[in-house]
Nucleic acid binder design. Structure first.
Lengths: 215, 215
DNA sequence: GCAACTATTGGACGGTCGTCAAGATTTTAT
DNA sequence: ATAAAATCTTGACGACCGTCCAATAGTTGC
């Protein structure tokens, strides 16, 4: 009897928790959009609320404070953006195909998700000043690194080569290229997409110059 | 007579302008230090004034508004940081020496000037949101690119090779590595300096794999 | 259908921001 | 030496910030 009552209570409690979490996520995503549009420095709670369907007061019902909200937003970014190339890796059967489709995806997300990407770089850089973001940022960076490494490792495998550089270096190199292209994209300078399509295959080639036999 | 009076006036005017500019520069450097410490989002005029020997009101005597002051600060950064490796390039007589001294300098500035570097990345990223910084940022980025290219081109020359990638790519790659190491530096994760000393020579090698005869 | 609880509103608060201007102080020209 | 011009300080201003809270609306369990 007591047990039945408890499980009922539990069911109710769980449903409430689920609903609570769902709204938290909803508000965190609204936060993400605000950050992508305005950047960290100009993102305010009232702006965030305006992007959702609620008033600004509700944010303190679901989040302890602004930091809590922003942290949750960062985690939402993670859920969105760390598996982008996995399909490409899974489906490629030749090195040329992987190279081409990776490059295409790279350029496509540069074009389509530019505001989201500038948000990521903004938050990552913010973590250099504000310790409270650092843990989540490092975890996402790690996931991004793994994502890139899956591409490079598979590409090397298909080429019957070995990567010439470490996992961290591979990520840094491609991240640097992406950031550069993103700046060009916003500045309207040159044609970053075209430049990437030309340069990325060469870079991939360089990153797997090692021969398996030679280690 | 009129001419003499005018040149005298001019001399006075010029001296005043010089003094005015000197103080502008002084305040812009104070701004730079504040930005390096607090980041763009938390840098306020009163904080900046506190880092100088003046009160906050004086900032509007020398600068039209906050944006004007920050823009001048960005230009001061440029004067500081776009010729860092030139001595290394000028004095190196062998590829091994250039590689070693470039790597040492790279790691040294990562360690010694970390706050200044995080400021640069903060401002560069800010230019993705705020158009008013973009022009100056792009110019500095261009100068950094040239600085890096002088290193790579000279290294290739000493190795009797040709660079395997474009100027922009070379810069992006090394910038990505630096940014990664900077994050590691602030997060206290691993030993970014050690990792760089290990990886940088390999990367340089990869960047100049082209042969002059075949290139 | 009614009480208990959850969810949401919107305004008020103390604080800080950029900006400005009036006045004090220092420097300069003669 | 002194008047004029420059430099600098101080305090105030309206705006906006994050936070909080009393009141209201909506939902749920029984």
């Amino acid at each position: 009897m007591t047990e039945v009552a408890e499980t009922k209570q539990d069911r109710i409690a769980r449903r409430q928790v689920d609903k609570f979490d769902a709204r938290r996520t909803e508000l965190a995503i609204a936060t993400l959009h605000t950050l992508a549009e305005l950047g960290y420095a100009r993102t305010t709670l009232r702006e965030i609320a305006q992007k959702s369907e609620f008033s600004h007061g509700v944010l303190h019902y679901y989040f302890a404070d602004k930091r809590d909200l922003l942290t949750e937003a960062v985690r939402q970014y993670e859920a969105l953006c760390v598996t982008r190339y996995d399909d490409v890796v899974a489906q490629a059967v030749t090195a040329e195909q992987l190279c081409r489709e990776f490059t295409d995806m790279f350029v496509a997300t540069l074009r389509d998700d530019a505001p989201l990407h500038r948000l990521w770089y903004d938050l990552r850089n913010q973590s250099l000043f504000d310790e409270s973001f650092r843990k989540d940022v490092l975890e996402i960076d790690e996931r991004r690194e793994e994502m890139i490494w899956r591409v490079i490792a598979r590409y090397a495998e298909l080429r019957n080569r070995e990567p010439a550089i470490s996992r961290a270096t591979a990520y840094s190199v491609l991240d640097g290229l992406f950031q550069r292209a993103l700046l060009g994209e916003f500045a309207g300078a040159g044609e970053p997409a075209r430049a990437l399509k030309r340069e990325l295959p060469r870079v991939l080639e360089l990153l797997v110059t090692g021969r398996p036999e030679l280690g």
